[in-house]
């Protein structure tokens, strides 16, 4: 800036360095604790020089929390949620921005309202829907009388069933069903010059062609940003995966943290717990470090 304020600058630096220390401290403690053995990790205060048991602890945590399987599931889960968001929101926003049909405003508001209630708030009924994802349609058929009619005519009783508990779709689909991405795309589409669509139409391109050949390539930066924030968000989900996956084959890494808590009357093996924590928190952190620009950009754009 234009003036010299050495004292104030020094004060700022002190505060910032303090903040830096506070921000890095938990990372440092997790890493250091993961290198000690059982005895050293329980010394008070924790010795801050790293020990030599890092790989042993990692191996132990890997086995105890079944991390091979769980990390794989987490990657599939977070990847699919992010991809689903990127694709479905691009399509929904296209319908809202580039078409004019009756009921368009209603669709807009129907999607918009989902921003208001996060999954955690309506967790109990969402869980019951996940037990049979076609239950809403079955209930509608029953009420409308379609079930009875079909049964009388054909002798076949409609019983729609698609249980989602303990399955990848059950983990993924409910988390895709929010409006976050749709608005990111909508804002972006609105900034695209009118002339582009005009020219495309003049050249005889239909909506599908315009969407695939012009809009999607143009929205690549948006897609990367959205994918990054959604991957991190999905990876860090806890309550929903905890409820839906009782079968360990479909469990994800973050819910495995519970098995790593040292039990009250067992060994206080915090070294293993911290090694597991490190492995589980690392993937989204690495993604954020590598993609920081996109992450920040996506976060700010999607919240506004």
């Amino acid at each position: 800036m234009v003036e010299r304020t050495p004292i104030f600058n020094a004060l700022c630096q002190i505060v910032l360095l303090l903040g830096l220390a506070m921000a890095l401290l938990p990372f440092a403690i997790v890493i250091i604790a993961a290198t000690h053995d059982l005895r050293t990790v329980n010394i008070v205060p924790l010795p801050l020089t790293p020990g030599s048991h890092f790989l042993d602890n990692i191996a132990e945590a890997w086995v105890r929390a079944d991390l091979g399987r769980k990390l794989f599931n987490s990657v599939v889960f977070a990847g699919c949620v992010a991809a689903g968001k990127v694709i479905l929101s691009a399509m929904a926003a296209f319908a809202i921005v580039y078409f004019r049909f009756p009921g368009r405003a209603a669709i807009f508001w129907a999607i918009f309202i989902t921003l208001m209630l996060p999954l955690e708030v309506r967790i109990v009924p969402t869980y019951s829907v996940a037990a049979n994802a076609l239950q809403p349609f079955q209930a509608i058929f029953d009420v409308v009388g379609l079930t009875g009619l079909v049964e009388r005519l054909t002798g076949y009783r409609i019983a729609l069933e698609w249980p989602l508990l303990n399955s990848y779709p059950g983990l993924i689909l409910p988390l895709v069903a929010t409006a976050t991405g749709t608005f990111l795309y909508r804002q972006f589409y609105l900034t695209i010059p009118e002339e582009l669509a005009e020219a495309a139409k003049m050249d005889g391109s239909g909506p599908l062609r315009f969407f695939l050949d012009m809009l999607l390539p143009l929205s690549r930066p948006n897609m990367i940003a959205l994918f990054t924030i959604m991957f991190v968000w999905a990876w860090n989900q806890y309550l929903w995966p905890l409820l839906v996956t009782t079968d360990p084959n479909f469990g994800i890494a973050v819910t495995e943290l519970k098995t790593l808590i040292p039990s009250e009357f067992g060994l206080p093996d915090w070294n293993v717990a911290m090694a597991g924590t490190l492995l589980i928190m690392l993937p989204p952190l690495v993604l954020v470090i590598l993609m920081q620009r996109w992450f920040v950009r996506g976060l700010i754009a999607s919240e506004k």
Binding site: F27, V30, N236
Partner: peptide, 14 residues
């Protein structure tokens, strides 16, 4: 920015 990348339960355990 890093703290925001960490899963709440993971930092809970830390």
């Amino acid at each position: 920015v890093w703290p925001y990348a960490i899963a709440a339960p993971a930092l809970g355990l830390a």
